[in-house]
Nucleic acid binder design. Structure first.
Lengths: 232, 232
DNA sequence: GTCAACAAAAATATTTATATTTTTTATTTT
DNA sequence: AAAATAAAAAATATAAATATTTTTGTTGAC
């Protein structure tokens, strides 16, 4: 067994391109690379110790995700975002996630229910546990994502789920920003509980109402955070 | 003025990467590169006379569009598609395009109306004109796209339009396939007229009904075409 | 002296060519 | 027939070359 195949087992990352994609994505979503910032090849090569080829491939993929903008003969920049973007993505997420949820609920089996309950409790433990610092933020984001994914997991449409995931991930950029700034005045935990209960009751109409309200509340929080930062 | 800047005015294409992206995309959507086909770098280099760098960047972008699949250390393949995909994309397009239309109509001004009328008539001219061969197919696709885009053009949400455009373009792969195989038994022209009239009447509810039926009919035609080809 | 136009230089992006690694295929051995 | 090995093909990554854009500095006009 070769050294590389051993390494692979850990991260399950086959190519340098993929690694570049993951690293860049994380740094953009987390804000380490600021919106509008120029992504100079030379700088990135030093930062990640990766050649320009894989880096350019990664940025090309990120351009497809609208996280990077290609300027054409003038390089790449981190995609900017505005209050308007936050609103639009929120509305779109509302439309798509409510639809996915309504298709997921009638198809949900016991495993689906258990997954919802499990992910909910993990999230609950973190939320009601002892206050922790910034390191808990990434963990919360991860568990929150897992919970929302569990809810729609029984939706049979791959394309709908794909679109939902895209919007959700985009919203992550905004969520992270807002959680850095604002105290969590919202009762997110209660919202999540209501969401879980409606889903397990197989009440499609109620689930849709709750998810829409939930996403609206998130979007509003995000918009306030952006405004307080003075970002246009 | 240099040679390259002169060339640029014509096609408005700045980099080789972009050209590779356009060429590959066209060949995949048109079916010249068949679903499931392996995209070997060497073959593509001969085909387009473009180096591996730009080709890989183009394929990375196409992977973001889900038109190409990255195998990781084993190259790229043209994304496969199934009847299931056609159905899902059709349903999603229905959801998103109806929403975009309902936001576009209340915002539509005179220019919006005129654009709809213009694009409709261009389409009408082609559809009612003398029968032509395969070369008219690409033109029809272009005009059909322009008409549908005109309808939603007044929608204020960039992200919604972006998502709609993505689904529409994906549907193109299927539309082209179906139009190659089936006689146009449907009264597409009549459907388009009904669509235009409902939009110009600013009747949101009716427009949504009509667009949904229209997309459903397209999806059904596409599915029949795929089935008759024996593609799973 | 300030501004604009221009030219040279530097920085940067892009592409091609080369080297390396990995996968696939063919062959041989057990 | 299955496993192991060797050869070929292919993909990936690096490094070098090329082309473009941006910056800087200079000149000349006002």
């Amino acid at each position: 067994m070769s050294k590389t195949s051993l390494m692979r087992e850990a991260g399950e990352e086959k190519t340098t391109s993929e690694r570049a994609y993951r690293l860049l994505r994380e740094d953009i979503v987390s804000g380490a690379l600021a919106p509008g910032q120029k992504l100079k090849i030379e700088m990135l090569r030093n930062r990640y110790d990766i050649g320009s080829g894989p880096l350019r491939e990664a940025m090309s993929r990120l351009a497809g995700d609208h996280l990077v903008q290609i300027l054409g003969q003038r390089g790449f920049v981190v995609a900017d975002f505005t209050v308007q973007d936050a609103r639009e993505i929120g509305d779109l997420r509302k439309l798509v996630e409510a639809e996915a949820l309504s298709l997921s609920i009638p198809n949900g089996d016991t495993a689906w229910e258990e997954r919802i309950i499990t992910t909910f409790h993990r999230l609950e433990r973190l939320e009601t546990g002892p206050e922790r610092g910034v390191e808990a933020l990434a963990e919360w984001e991860q568990l929150n994502g897992a919970f929302h994914e569990a809810l729609v997991a029984a939706c049979p449409s791959v394309w709908l789920l794909r679109t939902r995931a895209g919007m959700f991930k985009h919203h992550e950029r905004f969520r992270r920003l807002s959680r850095l700034r604002t105290v969590l005045t919202r009762d997110i935990h209660g919202e999540h509980r209501a969401l879980m209960e409606a889903a397990l009751d197989k009440d499609v109409a109620k689930s849709q109402r709750v998810i829409r309200t939930h996403i609206e509340a998130t979007t509003e929080a995000v918009i306030n955070a952006i405004k307080s930062l003075g970002v246009s």
